[in-house]
Design a protein around this nucleic acid. Structure first.
Lengths: 205, 205
DNA sequence: ATCTTGACAGACAGATCTGTCTACATCAAG
DNA sequence: CTTGATGTAGACAGATCTGTCTGTCAAGAT
């Protein structure tokens, strides 16, 4: 493979192709500091890449942002579904509040800074460009997955359960981001159990 | 919150002092497009104010942002508490889900773009400056108010009820922002009722 | 051995952003 | 009438940001 000439200012040895280094560096910086606050110059400096190498692989900063969101969506969903499946296998039966348990693992990570898609929409002003659409699509897919999980957990009206659960999920994410309190997952678990109980009792509609 | 900005919707730059025009224009632009995306030049242009008039009244852009957050906090809280009080007076008795009804009024506004404080933290990168502290303080005060309201509604363990309710509140705000669906207030009302029921049944702990 | 490809290094243009500065106008109070 | 406070208009410096450009280098392919 391509040998690496430039070392990375004491960072880990630069691994992978230039494109891969740019994308992983951008992912870290975009998530940690926000898209707008992260300049191309900083990305290429930390990735140990020339500017033209960046523009050979990405058409623009917006293109890089979209690539970041695409990858983030795929990786996060894969992680979330796998972690949830692990819990289900361990407990033997699925339960709505397991969604919160998995979120709790995420919240405990040192670099947690909320949901990248929520943060993007929050800083995006209005500009309904392709980035915004990717964020919306991510949430739609998550909601569809939650509905399927609710169905597998035997919750009546799983679509409504998913709509309710999404409010709790986003709330727990944002509350953790705003307070730094790790206890939000526990509150979310309690609320998700309440959703299942309420729907079973027919208290909803 | 409608009456809050009704002031300079189509108003001419000749309304109020220069400081007031700058602050109300900044409030509108900061909320609509985000803090980072809104430049000083645009603010002073739309406010019809000279640059030096701006820097005579505010020490820096950061100072303006803080003034914006201060005012936003005061006005939003005042509006929220008044609107809630109106509902309570109308119904005769307080009920936790009324929090969601009031949020629904907010969500229905044409220029709704989520919570200014959440958006600020989301776009703020990390930089723990004074702006971030104001956002956290806002959420703390809101939670304290919700706890008091839960107590007045006769909910057992009002502090825990408030912690749970805050998850639902933030979730409903963000879900409305991310989906544009006006139905989130209804879902939140259902969840808030579930909190009250769960705590009354002692299902919480 | 030469050509092509991918990469690095860094200068550069053009735009934009914050903050400072000068110059001039208005108006109220001493 | 002069002085000070407040305001407008706009030039300017310095930084930063995106995107383009030239030059050089290493290694594989032909």
């Amino acid at each position: 493979m391509a040998p690496m000439y430039a070392s990375n200012e004491g960072d880990e040895p630069t691994a992978g192709s230039a494109r891969e280094r740019v994308l992983s560096t951008a992912a870290r910086l975009f998530y940690a500091h926000g898209v707008r606050a992260t300049g191309i110059d900083r990305i290429i400096a930390e990735a140990g890449v020339a500017k033209m190498s960046f523009y050979r692989h990405f058409p623009s900063k917006s293109g890089l942002v979209q690539a970041f969101l695409d990858r983030r969506h795929a990786q996060w969903m894969a992680w979330f579904e796998a972690a949830l499946q692990r819990r289900v296998a361990q407990a033997g039966v699925p339960r709505l509040s397991m969604l919160a348990d998995v979120l709790g693992e995420w919240f405990a990570q040192a670099d947690f800074r909320g949901c990248a898609f929520i943060n993007l929409v929050a800083e995006d002003g209005e500009a309904d460009g392709p980035e915004r659409a990717l964020a919306f699509a991510h949430k739609l897919e998550l909601q569809a997955f939650v509905a399927g999980f609710a169905r597998s957990a035997g919750v009546p009206d799983p679509d409504r359960a998913a709509a309710l659960a999404m409010v709790v999920i986003e709330g727990a994410i944002v509350r953790t981001q705003m307070t730094g309190d790790a206890a939000m997952a526990g509150l979310a678990a309690r609320l998700l159990d309440g959703i299942a109980i309420g729907l079973r009792d027919g208290r909803a509609s």
